[in-house]
Nucleic acid binder design. Structure first.
Length: 596
RNA sequence: GCACCUGUAGCUCAAUUGGAUAGAGUAUCGGAUUUCGGCUCCGAGGGUUAGGGGUUCGACUCCCUUCAGGUGCACCA
């Protein structure tokens, strides 16, 4: 397809050659969108060129503009403001571009490049339900996977389920002692909620025991170590690692409950995975690798028998890899998991870990350790880090029970969507099933869009009220624009108008040029988003486009058009916009309804 | 204490990676329409980009520094 920027670059090189007899380098030519207060669509920054043209930036721009206008079909007009050369592109070019895009329903998606990557996200602990933070994680990981796919990568979506360790033993101990045989069936609770309940109970009992011990005169630190219930949990972990049948059975049962619960939540969220990894299946590989590293002298053993790695040369500290009792820690497991994944998928060139920014240090260390152990792919590992999500009501702290549960929040979004939609009377003629689907699309779309439109590295504020507004930079607004176009297309069909870009079109509205300029930028935006792992780029892009189309729509009344060719063109043009909106939203994991 | 991240309009976020007069939405104020103090349109105000210094044709962006907030520095995961 015709690419205006690269076309302009080539023509400008030629112009420069012919005007100043100098072969200008491509990277000195930066084209950017023209600011809307000036005429034109593409702007060449002339400041860096003066050195080679031997003229000041204005004169340089003037000369180049004159040349491009006079000698090319592409450029029809120009103006120079300060050192900026603004170029107007011919309508025939725009129409040609529209035609190319219209013919290509798959516009934006690159063909497979042969590159293969793995994206990890979600990766919950199995001792408590998913919360708001997990929502950002899942949406982010899923979206990045979609973006990478669109950019030509083969993508494997995976997660690592932290199904072993002291945390799950805590829930198990509490259930054993105080559960009285409760099950999801007997309590009518989602499995993850039930197990989470016992995790909380454990914590309460543990705290009570600590304060008892402190009252008896023990220092805080000692009390934390000696509380009977924590000792029980530690003993259980050891039994688990030794394959004690009873403990393993309980562990399987309770994890099973959690998985059933998680599956429901994932389904509601609309995310999925190609393969699941379980720490219970990877930690022993990690242990092997650590022992191997110890033999090779890469690691060292302390007097108490614990195994460490020394990272002082890298400016970091020493890091524990095996406890004195020989059990493995978080890091050990992650080493095993990473290696196992490369064995499973030898062709992947990169692993992307979607994990909160509180673990930046962990991943920094992990990647260094893997490199030290001799795995050169470690340098391609990437920690997709993201900030916390705050709520207007205040901070989210799991210990204080102020966590916002993922299921509850999504349900609240659906309810709000229903409430707002009914209020606006937008669902006349909907069957109850269709209406239900619409509430879900709107509620979930609002949530996803709001969480994804912010740069991942930033801590963000989630305001449920704002997120589901039909006005402004929100999911529902974009969904609304799409539905509006869909309605227009339906009407065109009724009237028997075929969307088509014929040869008779020769001029465009300024707002159409503006929108087309945005549209032709779509593949570049995908690439940028893929390179920076930022769905926010796509989100803000699609908002700009929806807004621009909306302006066009209010300026031009489409069906009063008496020129049939022009009408067919405007329908085709709208169709392209709808497709790009749909594709963009798909990259964010958001459904766009046809009707709303 | 050390390390990393963040700081942009009252609020929530952008800014094409160093480019023009820093933009949207929301809130506020004004106007239009309207059988609601609701909805919808139009317009306006609102900024020393946390402060200071430096680099250059040009800095929200890069470097140094101070301040504020957050996170990490577990034989938890």
């Amino acid at each position: 397809m015709l690419n205006i920027t690269s076309e302009l670059t080539q023509l400008t090189i030629k112009a420069f050659q012919s005007l100043f007899n100098y072969e200008i380098s491509e990277d000195l030519l930066t084209f950017q969108p023209t600011r809307k207060e000036f005429e034109g669509s593409h702007t060449l920054v002339c400041f860096p060129l003066g050195k080679f043209s031997k003229l000041n930036p204005e004169q340089t721009g003037e000369k180049i503009g004159e040349y491009l206008k006079g000698n090319t079909e592409l450029v029809t007009d120009y103006n120079v403001v300060k050192g900026f050369l603004n170029l107007s592109i011919s309508d025939t070019t725009w129409i040609q571009i529209a035609r190319d895009i219209h013919k290509n329903p798959d516009f934006g998606n690159k063909a497979l490049t042969g590159r293969e990557v793995m994206v990890e996200y979600s990766s919950p602990n199995t001792n408590k339900p998913l919360h708001l933070g997990h929502l950002r994680n899942n949406f982010l990981g899923y979206s990045v996977a979609e973006i990478l796919k669109a950019n030509g990568n083969k993508v494997h979506k995976v997660q690592i389920i932290n199904d072993r360790g002291i945390h799950i033993c805590k829930s198990m101990v509490a259930w054993q002692k105080f559960g009285e045989g409760e099950t999801p069936e007997s309590t009518q609770m989602k499995g993850d909620k039930l197990v989470g309940k016992y995790y909380v109970i454990f914590d309460q009992k543990y705290k009570a025991q600590i304060s008892d011990l402190i009252e008896k005169g023990l220092p805080q630190e000692e009390a934390e170590k000696q509380a009977p219930i924590i000792i029980e949990a530690q003993e259980m972990l050891l039994k688990w690692e030794n394959n004690d049948p009873e403990v393993v059975k309980l562990w399987k049962t309770m994890n099973g409950w959690v998985y059933t619960g998680f599956d429901i939540t994932y389904k509601t969220m609309g995310v999925d995975f190609d393969k699941l990894y379980y720490e219970s299946q990877t930690y022993s590989l990690g242990k092997e690798e650590v022992l191997k590293g110890l033999e090779e002298g890469l690691l060292f053993k302390k007097e108490d028998g614990s195994v460490w790695i020394d990272l002082k040369e890298e400016g970091l500290d020493e890091k524990l890899l095996l406890r004195k009792d020989g059990t493995s820690v978080y890091m050990t497991q992650d080493i095993g998991t990473a290696i196992l994944r490369y064995r499973d998928f030898p062709k992947i060139s990169q692993q992307i870990y979607t994990v909160g920014n509180e673990q930046e240090y962990h991943f920094k260390v992990l990647f260094i350790i893997l490199a030290k152990l001799g795995y050169e792919w470690a340098q391609n590992c990437y920690h997709l880090s993201y900030g916390m999500v705050d709520l207007p009501s205040g901070k989210m702290k799991s210990r204080e029970g102020t966590v916002v549960d993922a299921d509850d929040l999504m349900q609240e979004m659906f309810d709000t969507a229903k409430h707002r939609t009914d209020e606006l009377g937008k669902i006349e003629g909907f069957s109850s099933e269709d209406a239900e689907k619409l509430y879900r699309d709107l509620g979930l779309g609002a949530l996803k869009y709001y969480l994804l439109r912010v740069d991942p590295v930033k801590r963000m504020m989630f305001n449920p009220e704002d997120s589901i507004d039909f006005q402004g930079n929100t999911g529902p607004f974009i969904q609304y624009v799409h539905a509006r176009i869909s309605a227009l297309l339906r009407k065109a069909k009724q009237l028997g108008v075929e969307p088509e870009i014929g040869d008779g079109i020769n001029s465009l509205e300024p707002s159409e040029r503006f929108v087309l300029n945005l549209i032709q930028d779509f593949p570049a935006k995908i690439e940028e988003a893929a390179n920076t792992y930022s769905p926010s780029i796509i989100a803000n892009y699609v908002y700009d486009m929806a807004k621009a189309y909306n302006r066009f729509y209010s300026e031009v009344s489409i069906f009063t058009e008496d020129d049939q060719q022009n009408l067919a063109f405007r329908i085709a043009f709208s169709q392209i916009v709808a497709r790009v909106i749909k594709s963009s939203m798909k990259l964010l994991g958001v459904e766009v309804p046809e009707k709303m």
